[in-house]
Amino acid sequence: MKTIIKELLKELTLNGKKPFQYKILAKADDKLGISDSVSLTNLLMQWHKKIKRGFPFAQYQNDHLQLSELMQAKYKILFENCPELSELYELKNDKIYFNSSLTNEEKQEILDYVDENYKIVRHSYGRRS
């Protein structure tokens, strides 16, 4: 795996956790705000997860991540402010794909890395009884 991809994956899988000094995602965090940046990168990482709450996580069964119109605009800002993302992904209109230059082995290596290193954090909102 290329060094830049490994460093980017490290930041993407740890995004939103404190304390962590971002280097690659710093400009995007500044432009979008930490909340939007974390939400966008979490969605990317969740797309790669194999299991979610004990059930197979179906999103990666697609070869792309489908975006709403609002998400499309935010991802455009993310990609503009973090050009290193183009090493991993291609943003095409309302979809995100793996970079077409990646081999199937590299894609699998990325999927395995995310599955091992990214933990989905479940948040509960509402009243407690």
Rank of each mutant, 00 (worst) to 15 (best):
F20M: 07
R53D: 05
Y118C: 03
G33N: 12
S35N: 08
S129Y: 11
A28F: 08
E69L: 10
L70I: 12
L91C: 01
W47S: 00
N62V: 02
H123Q: 07
L91N: 01
I34N: 12
R127Y: 06
Q59V: 14
Q66Y: 11
G16I: 04
N93S: 14
Q61S: 10
M1Q: 04
K74V: 07
A58L: 14
K6A: 11
Y89P: 01
I4W: 14
L9K: 09
L43K: 15
E109Y: 15
E80R: 13
Y97L: 11
D36I: 10
L91K: 02
T103V: 09
E90S: 13
L40N: 03
E90I: 15
I5Q: 13
N62L: 10
K50R: 03
L32G: 06
K50G: 01
N99W: 00
D112S: 07
N42F: 02
L44V: 01
L67G: 09
I24W: 09
K17A: 07
D112T: 07
L88K: 02
K74S: 09
K95V: 12
I77P: 01
T41R: 11
S37Q: 11
Y22G: 04
L8F: 04
K76R: 14
L67C: 15
I24R: 14
T41A: 06
L88T: 05
N104V: 10
I34K: 13
Y113N: 02
I51C: 00
S37A: 12
E109W: 11
K31E: 12
R122S: 06
A26V: 12
I120Q: 12
D29Q: 04
F20S: 08
S100C: 04
E7W: 01
E80S: 12
A28V: 09
R127A: 07
S101P: 02
V114H: 00
T41Y: 04
S100L: 11
L111K: 15
I24H: 10
H123P: 01
K92I: 13
K74C: 04
M45S: 02
T3P: 04
Y75P: 09
H64I: 02
L91H: 08
K52Q: 03
F98I: 06
K31R: 14
S124M: 12
F98H: 12
W47Y: 15
D63T: 05
I110V: 13
L32I: 11
R127G: 04
Q59H: 03
I96N: 00
Q21F: 10
I120C: 06
N104G: 06
N99Q: 04
E90M: 11
S35F: 13
N104I: 08
L32A: 15
E87H: 15
K50D: 05
E80I: 00
